[in-house]
Amino acid sequence: MPSRRMFLAGLLASGVAPRASWADAGSPAYLSAARLPSGAYALFGLNAGGQVVFEIPLPGRGHAAAAHPSQPLAVAFARRPGRFALVINCADGTVKTRLDAPPGFHFYGHGTFTADGSVLCTSENDFNNARGMIGLWDVRNGFARLGAIPSGGIGPHELRLMPDGETLVVANGGIETHPDAGRQKLNLPEMRPNLSYVSLDGATLDQHQPPPEWHQNSIRHLALRKDGLVAIACQWQGNPTDTPPLLATHRRGQNLAFHDPGTDIWRDMQGYLGSVSFSGSGAEIAVTGPRGGVALITDASGQPQRLIEQPDICGAAPGASGFVFTTGQGLVLEDAGTSRQMASEWVAWDNHLVSVA
């Protein structure tokens, strides 16, 4: 009987070799960037139990990653106002290509693939014109840039592909920045965040803003349920004593709905949500407040269910029966009604825990 190696060699010779899948990278369930004890940075793959299945060096601090829907490819994004986005083959740890934002642009730390994996969409800042853009990259042609479309606002951060496969939902944070000013926020008195729905051909299909009195409530991060319900995490840029609700949900055709648990939880979180996620069942929403060391879990209508108190908790993703969280202290936690530690690593997990399709 021919060996597997001989069989694969025959497939290669015939030009019909099977395409690598995420199984070839150890079947990770999640991706996360982290800082190592040495001060270096890396992208990690974690399995469903929170154990590391691969570690790939990064040239600087990472923010989030985009996982290809079928191939073991991850795009690791630098923290804003980063210039690098690396396309990494997670099966062998090699960098396939580096994406460079065009002159006058920089990345905002997030991206997403189209459903068939043929196009990568990246949130970007056209800083000379103070407008948000979505970069489009041709995966099948070596990630060549196809162009860019307007994001519908200023400061686009996270974006997700809607279930229709043709529309992007975009968190336009409303904050003007410029790389010459570092991380300085240039327009806080006049900022206007919004949630925009943008077609892949560049049309703004729908758009919603917070109430005028909450115009400094920067819409930053998104989670998407399979039926199209969007959960939104905000970061308050106004007076700390006047923190409004930081969690909202939206369904197209309806109004933007903010949810307030009726306690001082938003102040306890210091007006800053780091991540948002639906549970594996979609019945609950989690938002994390790394500055306050607390995560809030609500039902899908925004009614509070429970709190998790854990220093520097930030990354959040769906789990098999609830949520998985990561912390800057190296912990990986599971919550399915109660919390337990799944794993601990000598790393500082960064802001986001990204599910692999």
Rank of each mutant, 00 (worst) to 15 (best):
I285D: 12
W236F: 08
V87K: 03
D268G: 14
A320Q: 09
S27V: 13
A85C: 13
E284I: 01
P69E: 04
A181S: 15
A29D: 07
I175M: 00
G280K: 10
D100E: 15
I175C: 01
S344M: 14
A65M: 11
S196Y: 05
S218E: 09
R252W: 10
P261I: 07
L159V: 06
T112H: 07
E345M: 09
D206R: 04
L256E: 06
V75T: 02
K185Y: 05
L331E: 06
I219P: 02
G238Y: 05
L161Y: 05
M342K: 00
A74Y: 08
V332M: 09
V170W: 01
L195M: 03
L256N: 05
G15I: 05
P244R: 03
G39S: 08
A66T: 12
G132E: 12
V170Y: 04
V87S: 03
A17W: 14
P72K: 02
D227T: 05
L353Q: 03
A91D: 09
G202Q: 11
F77L: 10
L331M: 01
L168D: 01
E345K: 05
S339P: 02
D206L: 14
G322T: 13
W214V: 04
P69K: 13
T94H: 15
E158W: 15
I149H: 13
L331T: 01
R35C: 06
A320Y: 12
F278G: 03
L296Y: 07
L31C: 11
G15M: 02
D350Y: 14
R19P: 10
T97Q: 12
N172Y: 09
L222R: 04
F107R: 12
A78W: 06
P240D: 13
A115Y: 14
G50H: 10
V332K: 12
G45N: 00
H63E: 03
H250L: 03
D92H: 12
A74P: 07
